[in-house]
Nucleic acid binder design. Structure first.
Lengths: 115, 115
DNA sequence: ATTTCTGGTTACCTTTTGGTTACTGGTATT
DNA sequence: AATACCAGTAACCAAAAGGTAACCAGAAAT
């Protein structure tokens, strides 16, 4: 048993990481932001099936954990720009590894189930 | 935008991977099995705070997606042995990367919240 | 005067996830 | 005769996550 894992979710570092990137939309959002600075509306346009409420919520959490910057311009109509912090950017390679793993190991089995 | 990510959870390979390893206990279970063959009761003993029902369920899903073998001996009292498939073993390094990422990037922030 | 633009918020509802407790079966031990 | 052993199941509950629809502000354009 590797000491990095502790047999209780509250103390498991993987579980902690999951609590950050594990939301239904979080990996997609992180990947969509990527290296650019992007406005809220643009994100919604790229990810049309996410709702306002959820996109707001996910971005808030990502900001809270230091993965995205949020810059609000006091204008009317409002303008808010999002971008990744260094911590956020450092997640991208990991997300790609997860994608690759999924593509090579479970694509067939799960695709039927997902429809 | 990398083509490996598709802006809809149903088609996103990361989301698919998450659906497999994203359960509250799945990373811990995978890591506890590791390279050995282990019985149900031993797993429960190592991970005491998981309930029978949830452990059964997680193992079933992991088996369904080809990450663990389940060998049932027709005896009384029952005996069932679990071990990782190659696909399951191939996940371990990824889980460790997630743990390392969490430890270096978010440990401080989130530990307060987790208690 | 009304609509549009933007980045949300709010109230409410449904689905998913995880948790609790009690129960099972056949053999061996007390 | 009762109990422990093991690997679960079944019925029921609670909490969390996610989704829907309506609403807001205040300036600019029609």
């Amino acid at each position: 048993m590797n000491s990095k894992f502790i047999n209780n979710p509250l103390n498991c570092p993987v579980t902690r990481t999951m609590s950050i990137i594990g939301g239904k939309w979080k990996p997609i959002i992180l990947n969509c932001i990527g290296d650019r600075t992007i406005r809220f509306g643009k994100l919604k346009q790229i990810i049309p099936s996410i709702s306002n409420k959820v996109l707001t919520g996910e971005l808030k959490e990502l900001e809270q954990y230091g993965l995205v910057y949020r810059i609000e311009f006091i204008e009317m109509p409002p303008r808010v720009e999002y971008s990744l912090t260094n911590a956020g950017k450092s997640l991208l390679p990991l997300l790609h590894e997860l994608a690759d793993w999924g593509n090579t190991h479970i694509a067939k089995k799960i695709i039927e189930e997902f429809g």
